[in-house]
């Protein structure tokens, strides 16, 4: 495992918002087939890193994914390259049903509409293709335990379930790399454990590389292969979860503890 090549490489990423240095020369290598957690206090730059990968911010430095220079690609090209993500503050089509939202994840690979279609809201055309997509979407929501909610409009659902819909949508896009921004926010412990199970399953069975931002240290410990710790836009530690949690700098910054 330790010899895995990085599928995603962030090199010396720096980004400023006005006077604030959101990221300062952050370099992270994400090995293929791993679950890589990014942790750190609020405002440490975790979501900023994810937003750089998904193309919403344009940092200095370099981002390479699967041999591609990501900084030269537009945000909407990510799904075709095999990158899917979920959002911290949820980005769903609120008026539409759970199933339609999840099916939207497959939009980029519908043959009849690469970069174009939004076939998911119609009953027209490409029935067969759409039927297969629907099956896949149903499978995804069942795996996430929201199978019975398929026809409900997402705006009706509690926060935690909306998070699950986002994850299901990302799954349906069949990514190589899955970016999860606090997917377990608003869930209780048993829900978190279930979702962690799902993430691990996706990782092990579908060989999806996962980059996850999560606050719950217990969850991070259980699912991560590697952990990167950010604080004030800088990387302060990296390594296996146990090793990182013991790091005095991490305890100080992240857990708010003084030297033990």
């Amino acid at each position: 495992m330790s010899s895995s090549v990085p599928i995603l490489e962030l090199a010396e990423l720096s980004l400023r918002f006005g006077g604030i240095k959101a990221l300062q020369a952050v370099s992270i290598g994400v090995a293929a087939g791993r679950i890589h957690s990014i942790i750190g206090p609020n405002g440490a730059g975790k979501s900023t890193v994810l937003n750089c990968i998904s193309g919403m911010y344009r940092p200095q430095g370099a981002i390479r994914f699967d041999g591609q220079d990501l900084l030269r690609r537009r945000p909407h090209e990510r799904p075709l390259l095999g990158i899917a993500r979920t959002f911290q503050n949820i980005a769903l089509f609120r008026e539409e049903s759970v199933l339609d939202n999840v099916m939207a994840g497959g939009h980029h690979r519908l043959k009849s509409g690469i970069l174009r279609g939004a076939l998911y809201w119609t009953r027209f055309g490409c029935r067969e293709e759409e039927r297969r997509l629907r099956d896949e979407a149903v499978e995804a929501i069942e795996l996430l335990g929201i199978g019975e909610l398929g026809e409900r409009p997402v705006s009706d659902l509690p926060f935690g379930d909306q998070k699950r819909v986002e994850l299901a949508r990302a799954m349906v896009s069949r990514p190589k790399l899955l970016l999860l921004d606090e997917p377990m926010a608003g869930m209780n412990d048993s829900e978190k454990a279930e979702l962690a199970q799902v993430v691990r399953k996706l990782n092990r069975e579908k060989h999806i590389t996962v980059v996850i931002i999560e606050h719950d240290v217990g969850v991070v410990r259980r699912i991560s292969d590697t952990v990167t710790v950010l604080d004030f836009g800088k990387k302060i530690a990296e390594g296996g979860p146990e090793e990182v949690m013991k790091d005095p700098a991490v305890r100080k910054a992240y857990l708010g503890e003084e030297e033990p």
């Binding site: 919403m56 990510r78 959002f87 089509f93 008026e95 980029h108 939004a118 076939l119 998911y120 809201w121």
Partner: peptide, 27 residues
């Protein structure tokens, strides 16, 4: 209501972030 582009536009107006992350070229 019925064309791809029309639906894509509705998707963007519903959630720009989501639409873009799913492969809709905003520009």
């Amino acid at each position: 209501q019925y064309t791809r582009w029309g639906l894509t536009m509705r998707a963007v107006s519903s959630s720009r972030k989501a639409a873009e992350s799913l492969g809709v070229p905003l520009v």
